[in-house]
Amino acid sequence: MDTKEKLKQILVKDLNLEEVTPEEISDSAPLFGEGLGLDSLDAVELVVIVQKHFGVEIKDMEEGRKAFQSVDSLAAYIEARTAA
């Protein structure tokens, strides 16, 4: 499974996204605000999720904000740090 697919499944499960399936999440749609409708508490939970499932540390929210634009950007962020 590629990172994007894995991410979507984890998002749905760990953030308990009721009534959303992994297939319905588009790669480029914004995760926060409009789009998936995540908020600041989800953002910090995402930091833990990324650490737990991918072993990638997001040190602060400034970094997090860039990574959390969309599934595309988050997958790229993770892959860039796990490739080596």
């Binding site: 508490l41 989800d42 939970e45 833990v48 650490q51 737990k52 540390e57």
Partner: peptide
């Protein structure tokens, strides 16, 4: 289970 850096904020 996750360690001290994986505490769930939610």
């Amino acid at each position: 289970s996750g360690g001290d850096n994986c505490a769930s904020p939610t």
